[in-house]
């Protein structure tokens, strides 16, 4: 049983690390600010969530696990707020998003 728990948490930690690196790569590869935000949100949700879940499995039923859960909740509530503030500030400053279909640009403002 302990072995299975270890295996599960190992898999979760590795998956979380993979998504973090993928998000970081996206941060570099994406062409403009708005698309980079999507890459960053992969790090904030999947990467953070999976790593914290793996650590919770390691901690078991202790105060440490509850603390990890609190960190997860903090990320889940705060990161979209910060992301929304960032995107809104960028749009208000007039940073035009690069769109796939230029004819759709009329729907912007």
């Amino acid at each position: 049983m302990a072995f299975l728990l270890d295996l599960a948490s190992w898999l979760l930690l590795c998956a979380g690390g993979f998504f973090c690196v993928a998000g970081g790569l996206g941060l570099l590869r994406m062409p403009d600010f708005y698309t980079r935000m999507h890459a960053a949100s992969v790090v904030d949700t999947l990467g953070a969530g999976l790593i914290l879940l793996g650590l919770i499995l390691q901690a078991g039923f202790t105060l440490v696990a509850v603390k990890l859960l609190m960190i997860g909740l903090l990320i889940f509530f705060a990161s979209p707020t910060a992301g929304h503030a960032l995107a809104r500030a960028a749009l208000i400053r007039g940073l035009a998003p690069r769109l796939a279909d230029p004819e759709d640009a009329s729907s912007k403002r």
Binding site: C14, G24, R36, D44, A82
Partner: peptide, 28 residues
């Protein structure tokens, strides 16, 4: 893996080009 992600985010923060990109990288 987290250190590698930190490095990638730092590169993005250095490259910019807008202040919002840097802030996004700082958030990451």
């Amino acid at each position: 893996a987290l250190l590698v992600t930190l490095l990638l985010a730092l590169v993005r923060a250095g490259l910019g080009p807008t202040v919002f990109d840097r802030l996004l990288a700082a958030n990451t």
